[in-house]
Design a protein around this nucleic acid. Structure first.
Lengths: 129, 129
DNA sequence: GTGGGGCCTCCCATGATGGGAAGGTCAAGC
DNA sequence: GCTTGACCTTCCCATCATGGGAGGCCCCAC
């Protein structure tokens, strides 16, 4: 299987497959012509990476998760710990964005939003602090 | 006022002040020795930028906001429109993070988290899809 | 006049992804 | 057999906002 097929059946772009290889998440055999060759096992790894990325795990976490996945002796506690730390990070980030949205929504609510130039939003951005 | 003082009183790092200048958000006079020179007016602009960044506006939005701020004839409607579009983007992003967190939290809840190797989190990441 | 701190420019790095150029390879159709 | 087009290769560049650091100039206080 060449990289294009691996990309199609894993949902990871060929570009990213090469990138993941370059940072050592993956390795690929090469055929005589220099093309990367993939087996089903590799496609499974790529899908794993994609799923982890879909959950927002940074690639360094993905690297650790792959290590834990490949280690059949790992304790599930390690995986859970990593996952919950990531959940906390996601929620912290989400709360931060919500706070920004709420502040801005409040400012916007006090803005006429008509043809007049007065604008509490700009006034707030221009505040001396 | 040199860049260090402008940084201290605006809360924007000297590094970022130079960067903002390089992308045209700001301009600075130069003294005979080549040092950038800032007036209170410039510090106000820097604070404006910082506040907008604190609300998560990307620099391209900041550029537009600065334009609207400098234009005393602008209609507040334009500012409000920009602000609400950004609020929507922030909320979309926050909901996306929350969805990831909820999925992962659900998986983690079903993971023993003890010394055993079984782990629904890894099973899910390894699913064929 | 020397030392230290501030300033200058320029390059590099982050994290994940994509775009694109220049060139090699292969298979199908004529 | 030769062309064509699709695929593959590597390498460089861009994004977005920010920081680190090197090498070198400038200025003030001691």
């Amino acid at each position: 299987m060449n990289i294009g097929d691996a990309a199609a059946s894993s949902g990871v772009s060929a570009k990213m497959i090469r990138h993941y290889e370059s940072i050592g998440l993956l390795s690929a055999a090469r055929s005589a012509n220099g093309y990367r060759v993939y087996a089903e096992r590799d496609v499974a790894v790529l899908r794993f990476i994609r799923h982890a990325r879909d959950l927002g795990f940074p690639l360094e976490d993905v690297r650790r998760l792959l290590g834990l996945w490949h280690d059949r002796q790992r304790a599930s506690a390690e995986v859970k710990k990593l996952a919950l730390a990531h959940v906390a990070a996601l929620e912290t980030k989400a709360r931060s964005l919500d706070a920004m949205a709420a502040s801005l929504r409040h400012l916007a609510a006090n803005c006429h939003g008509d043809g007049r130039p007065d604008c509490p939003i700009l006034d707030d951005l221009a505040r001396k602090e």
